[in-house]
Design a protein around this nucleic acid. Structure first.
Lengths: 191, 191
DNA sequence: GTCTATAATTTGATAGAC
DNA sequence: GTCTATCAAATTATAGAC
């Protein structure tokens, strides 16, 4: 039976994403994906050239979503402070609704299975965050320290919490830390 | 020829560590290690039961070093502020001398190839950092916010910089960021 | 477009000589 | 303690029927 090809493709991607996050890319074989998705090897290879191309498609898709998240959060506000807070808030929200996406983009070691992928920190969403920090320094909202340091404090702290949440070691829901986290981070870098 | 067995064992461990960091655990085969170390498969399996046991030995060794680093840095100072700064300074120094160690402990996804390893955040060095933060809160040095948040800001920011340094995307040597980083992080969480 | 069966490699690990 | 030769299993990927 010739099902909707787009549905099949999406099923392969969502199943592979779940397995990649749960067990890791290398510990998830094509046969695992085939079994978990209820498909055949042939169907998978009809839609994708290789296992790596599946990972690549996931990566492109999720990086695009992450870019939109950052652009939307950033574009809805005027000050660097409001933009940064909106980005972190949106990341925390995404972690609640789609933890797999956040985990794969922020914590997977893509270079190990996608050798041609650029370092994650040089991709668009991370460049945008860096740019917002630099604009905040230029406008006088943020202390004139190295933008890398300011970014590490503010977004690095948030990413650390996202990491802990992904490991399941937090007592409370992630969102309940947002206010304290942002207040402390912002106090550290604001003038 | 029966060489010094300890030397051989150390050679296997140091070679494996290098390959695991450069290419990842799964992309480094026993044959790769054999070739890079100039040994034979038989020699490797004489010293270790399995590939996983090599990774396990590396993990135990490096986690021990990291524990000593944190204990030494912490034990040499009285205030939470001085302890935290000494820990981050020592981590940055270790990154300069032994980047592979820092990378493997902080950034490798151990759970993917050592299923029985506890989450890294529940190991001794990380528990010590958390404890120092909590003592700082109790003594009135640190704002009475959630200790997880305070730790994420201070140490998460440092780990973020270590990550960027490991990816080779920093313009300057890591140590040159230390003062600004710690000052900003501490301002964020201190009373 | 989906399926089953199978090919071609690679992998972790073992056997046994020296 | 180290070596070479080899195994058994798993993996990615292909071929060809329906």
């Amino acid at each position: 039976m010739a099902r909707d090809p787009q549905k099949t493709r999406d099923l392969i991607l969502s199943t592979a994403l779940r397995l990649f996050v749960e067990k890791g890319y290398f510990a998830s074989s094509i046969h695992d994906i085939r079994h978990a998705a209820g498909l055949s090897i042939g169907s998978i290879y009809h839609h994708f050239d290789s296992k790596e191309s599946i990972a690549s498609a996931i990566y492109d898709d999720l990086l695009g979503r992450m870019t939109s998240l950052v652009e939307d959060a950033s574009g809805s506000h005027m000050t660097a402070k409001a933009k940064c807070r909106a980005i972190i808030s949106a990341l925390f929200s995404m972690h609640e609704t789609d933890p797999l996406i956040v985990h794969f983009v922020l914590h997977a070691r893509h270079r190990e299975f996608l050798p041609d992928a650029p370092p994650i920190c040089s991709t668009r969403p991370f460049e945008l965050m860096k740019q917002i920090i630099e604009e905040g320094i230029a406008s006088g909202e943020i202390h004139p320290i190295d933008s890398v340091v300011a970014g590490a404090i503010l977004f690095g702290g948030a990413m650390r919490l996202l990491h802990l949440a992904g490991d399941g070691v937090l007592d409370k829901p992630l969102g309940s830390y947002l206010d304290e986290l942002f207040e402390a981070g912002w106090r550290g870098i604001s003038v």
